[in-house]
């Protein structure tokens, strides 16, 4: 049931591989996104590994804390990153099984992400500034709408896998199942893509590059963090993108390639492809008007619901 297979050495190796991917890949994906946007805009853009350097630079700086903040403000970034790392331990990165897996772990996954979001929201509210509060309320609204879509879409995947565990989904749902399952899997994956864009504050839900406070959602929540806190936040956001994005990438990867290294490599390739795709979307689409975002998320819910009911009734 778990990935703690036959020998401890093998288990340790798979854990190490998983942790390496989880800890090192996010910044690479971030760099790919920025590079893609630069290429589309006709520029050369910053170096591919720039996010790593950014995090390292920020970790060595000093932090400034406002006098209105309390310990909640300092816990925010740490709590968010911690929740994301634990979520990353439950989600399969590629066709390799994750370190922890049990039936129903997808609920844990969703609520770990929710916990991270909650802590960030608290930190934002703790500053006592109206801008952060505005961002917090928007973020809360949009996540409320994204969550049903997430659950419904993952339910479709779980039905296709026959087991309500993310590891089972990684094992069973391959491109071949798309051919047999008809439209329900396509609808679910598309809904998950929209959820991923919403959860990670990317276009068309939120523009991470905007400077206008009135149009920010995620950026404005973390406006007051500096130094190591900001480093943790940037790093945590990148990891969240990887973790949620893996739900979209894994079903599309080719089936189990045999060796864990090959699977990990395939996943890395898939993650980079996801980064390119997001970069393209961000370069070609504009952010939606704020009042239209709930409509997009409601559309994702409807798509996932249709996929679920098609799966349940037609078995297709």
């Amino acid at each position: 049931m778990t990935a703690m297979g036959a020998s401890t050495a093998e288990a340790a190796r798979s854990l190490g591989l998983h942790l390496t991917l989880l800890l090192l890949a996010p910044s690479l994906v971030q760099g790919v996104i920025v590079k893609t946007k630069a290429f589309v805009a006709g520029r050369r853009g910053p170096p591919l590994l720039q996010p790593y350097f950014d995090v390292w630079k920020l970790l060595r700086k000093g932090a400034v804390y406002s006098r209105t903040t309390t310990v909640v403000f300092r816990i925010g970034p740490i709590g968010a990153l911690a929740a994301t790392i634990v979520a990353g331990l439950v989600v399969p990165l590629g066709r390799n099984a994750p370190p922890f897996a049990f039936p129903g772990d997808l609920v844990l996954f969703a609520y770990l992400l929710g916990l991270g979001r909650f802590v960030t929201l608290l930190a934002a509210l703790d500053t006592g500034s109206s801008f952060e509060g505005m961002g917090a309320s928007r973020e809360a609204t949009f996540s409320t709408l994204a969550e049903p879509a997430l659950f419904l879409a993952v339910a479709v995947l779980a039905l296709a896998a026959g087991n309500p565990s993310l590891a089972a989904i990684a094992e069973a749902v391959t491109p071949a199942s798309f051919a047999t399952s008809g439209p329900s899997l396509l609808l679910a994956v598309f809904a998950l893509l929209v959820v991923a864009l919403a959860e990670n504050s990317r276009v068309p839900v939120d523009d991470p590059a905007t400077h206008l406070e009135l149009t920010m959602i995620h950026e404005v929540m973390v406006l007051d963090h500096s130094g190591p806190d900001l480093a943790l936040i940037l790093y945590g956001a990148a990891m969240k993108l990887l973790v949620v994005g893996s739900l979209v990438v894994t079903p599309l990867l080719p089936g189990d390639l045999g060796s864990p290294w090959a699977n990990a490599g395939a996943f890395l390739g898939g993650a980079i492809a996801l980064g390119v795709a997001i970069g393209l979307v961000e370069s070609t689409m504009a952010r939606l008007r704020l009042v239209r975002v709930p409509l997009l998320l409601a559309g994702a819910i409807v798509l996932a619901a249709i996929g679920l009911v098609v799966r349940l009734t037609a078995g297709g």
Binding site: P294, A298, G299, I301, V302, I306, V309, T313
Partner: peptide, 16 residues
């Protein structure tokens, strides 16, 4: 929003 949600419900019902 209302029409999309209503339509979503109708579609789900008609498929079911």
């Amino acid at each position: 929003g209302a029409s999309l949600s209503l339509a979503g419900v109708l579609v789900v019902l008609s498929i079911a």
